[in-house]
Design a protein around this nucleic acid. Structure first.
Lengths: 150, 150
DNA sequence: CCCTTTCACTTGAGTGGTAAAGTGATGTTA
DNA sequence: TAACATCACTTTACCACTCAAGTGAAAGGG
């Protein structure tokens, strides 16, 4: 039996890359007392705040339950605040969260960029981004279809 | 302050894609009572068995502790066996594991392929694979360097 | 021959994720 | 108005992962 297809090879490379770069990212974020997942949440808030929990969960590809606990922790750290109106909780960064993010920001973006700048030219990065956008939209479509159906 | 770089945009698309496709993959594997991580381990064993725990951990980008627990579960399910020689445990698939994998195999490869076949041409997939190989090797180098240093 | 190192693996505490069941306010409807 | 549905969030139980400390067997040096 065949041991792979082109798709499976791409998939393998990509998951390995993401796993490895997450480890590295956690390493670089450790001095700031943040994890990669937490940074992701704070970034989304920075760009789109205020958001409801559901909207945030959607943006970071996490379930309701998952975001609920992450936000409990981030709230305990004093990095975000949740204000309840009606049945909805609106999430935004506290001043402390805002400041922390400002500190981490440049470093993390530089780290992320280095993963690609090291070995890909400008135009290759553009190509890669274009291809990734297409497959990500495809998986998002499939995912929503699956979630919608059940 | 700038909210992104080209690298950070690529990184975001890729992590979202991997997260979403993992969800879908877990969904498709559920009828077989397997998770994506378990399938990954079984596949590596299928291709490279026999392996020690350390070699396996390396291949699936997981720590010693992580692989230890996964293998306990897979052993309880009777899908793998671990035979101790000296201080090393050698891992291989049981007949049951071999059979299970044979059943799942085609479906999972077809699923993985569909993620790309849906929206990328043959030559685009080749391009994508080439670019990913380069960045994955780069991150692997950095990761090993980091692990080696500490 | 004991003492230490090393090596491969395990364990503990904690984070991050899922699915599925629970909670508690706010409509909606007979 | 009592019963029901719905919506946003929480909780529970589980898997997967990390780091760091622990274990136990073998190997080497005084």
């Amino acid at each position: 039996m065949r041991k792979n297809t082109r798709g499976s090879l791409i998939w393998l490379r990509m998951t390995r890359f993401v796993d490895q770069s997450n480890l590295l990212s956690n390493h670089f974020l450790k001095p700031y007392q943040l994890t990669t997942a937490q940074f992701d949440v704070l970034m989304q808030l920075f760009v789109y705040q205020p958001l409801t929990q559901s909207e945030l969960a959607e943006k970071v590809t996490v379930t309701q339950g998952g975001i609920s606990r992450m936000l409990v922790r981030l709230e305990q750290e004093g990095l975000i605040k949740r204000t309840q109106e009606w049945k909805t909780k609106t999430i935004s960064l506290t001043d402390k969260g805002q400041q922390k993010l400002a500190h981490v920001f440049e470093d993390q973006l530089a780290f992320q960029s280095s993963l690609f700048d090291d070995c890909l030219s400008e135009s290759e990065q553009k190509q890669l981004y274009a291809l990734l956008s297409r497959i990500q939209k495809n998986s998002e479509r499939k995912w929503k279809q699956y979630k919608g159906g059940q």
